[in-house]
Design a protein around this nucleic acid. Structure first.
Lengths: 238, 238
DNA sequence: AAAGATAGTGTACAAGTTACAATAAGCGGG
DNA sequence: CCCGCTTATTGTAACTTGTACACTATCTTT
């Protein structure tokens, strides 16, 4: 096949992590983008990302980027896909491990500090052209998110600790780009027994205030162990 | 944050692809392993893998490894997860992009040729210790496969072009490590309309021969476009 | 107190899932 | 050729889940 090589003879490549950070606000699904202030793709919006350090674990690198850019810690973070086409970066070969995270947008405090870069939320259905292959990465992340909220209770990561059923429904509708039937949605989600009624209601709304719920993760863990499968369906109806 | 660096100052790492190649034979789920003939982990079984070449796409590298090791082409291949702990390789930092593939084991012709290495199938439920972190990679692949056959008709990739319903059922049972109820399994899979009855039967068996079916991918594509979702459930019963 | 807005709820029908057992079709041996 | 062995094939009733659909309740504002 080929002669035995010394380890250091093998090709090495730069590698980064890029983070698709999802948030939910004003009834819309958003992602956090950073405006580049140096070439290549200067002035384009891009996914937050950075080079992985020599002794740094991949997930740690993704968490670091998240912390440095947004000040947020302990948020939902999961590896998505690795993108490594030889031509994806024009300064040389860069392989990127993409992560996606789900954050409560209210906790976001942009840490623009030393960066002098814009960091802002963009609604996903009207993105301009992004740097590098980041549009493709976002597309893969969206696809993953759509599947993910179907089979795991991750949607709650995008909502505040106390939320109304209508807010939760709007979240699903925004991600799936469908409309769901109110009574059936409530029946389904409540029947799983994962929501705790907080016996509180919304305040400051000009109509009947809705009850507030929280997601009970402890119960979910217990149910999961005994074979329970979370599952929501995109029904076809209005 | 930090001074602007020249691109070439960033840390670089070696990159490999590793391939979890699944097959199904004798009613058991198997994976293809290669016995290492050089340190580190000399004489340990390992996943087939190799360094990614400078201008090579990741998926192309995975396909190349598959071809070189097994002679197989055009098989099901999908990216699984990227493993990059700083300590996972003791000669230096090596990041591996793991792929998994599903092959028809009957097509396998080991190309041991120049390699002088053993390449053999191992049943997944009794693996010895593997090289590097390959046990973890296999575990992730197994997990993925279990989920995958539930929601996409990929199981057929592991079966010969013509198969019986019992074989298909055994495949699901092997992967899920459950037993399924015969009548309900058949009803479910046939009701999807994805199987074409070949009007042929098994030969050379000492009992009533079973009908042979094939998976009709064209129909699946059509159904998928119109919103159909493949879905099989691990029922709890025998 | 009336208007405006959103919250909250029940029921009948359809579709899908589950549990369960008897008959059919080949082969091989006597 | 008949019997026994082995696996293949099939239906139905009870139950669970999904779907379609519209009215009343509660709060705020004027």
């Amino acid at each position: 096949m080929q002669a035995r090589k010394n380890f250091n003879d093998f090709f090495k490549s730069a590698f980064t992590v890029d983070n698709v950070i999802f948030g939910f606000d004003e009834g819309k699904l958003k992602i956090l983008l950073i405006r580049r202030n140096e070439p290549p793709f200067e002035d384009f919006w891009a996914l937050p990302g950075y080079f992985v350090q020599p002794k740094e674990d991949l997930e740690a690198a993704a968490a670091r980027v998240l912390r440095e850019m947004t000040g947020m810690e302990n948020v939902y973070l999961e590896q998505l896909h690795t993108f490594g086409s030889p031509g994806r970066h024009n300064l040389g070969r860069v392989i990127t491990v993409a992560y996606y995270s789900l954050v409560k947008i209210a906790d976001f405090r942009p840490r623009a500090a030393g960066l002098a870069q814009d960091i802002t939320w963009h609604t996903v259905d009207d993105l301009e052209q992004l740097a590098f292959d980041h549009e493709e990465i976002v597309a893969v992340a969206l696809d993953k998110l759509k599947k993910s909220i179907r089979t795991r209770p991750v949607g709650f990561e995008l909502l505040p600790p106390a939320f109304t059923l209508t807010e939760l429904q709007h979240l699903y509708e925004a991600i799936w780009e469908t409309e769901l039937e109110k009574r059936n949605f409530r029946k389904k989600i409540l029947s799983m027994g994962l929501l705790e009624d907080l016996n509180r209601t919304q305040e400051g709304v000009a109509h009947r205030p809705a009850k507030l719920y929280r997601f009970d993760e402890a119960i979910y863990r217990k149910l999961e162990e005994s074979g329970f499968n979370f599952e929501m369906k995109e029904s076809k109806s209005k």
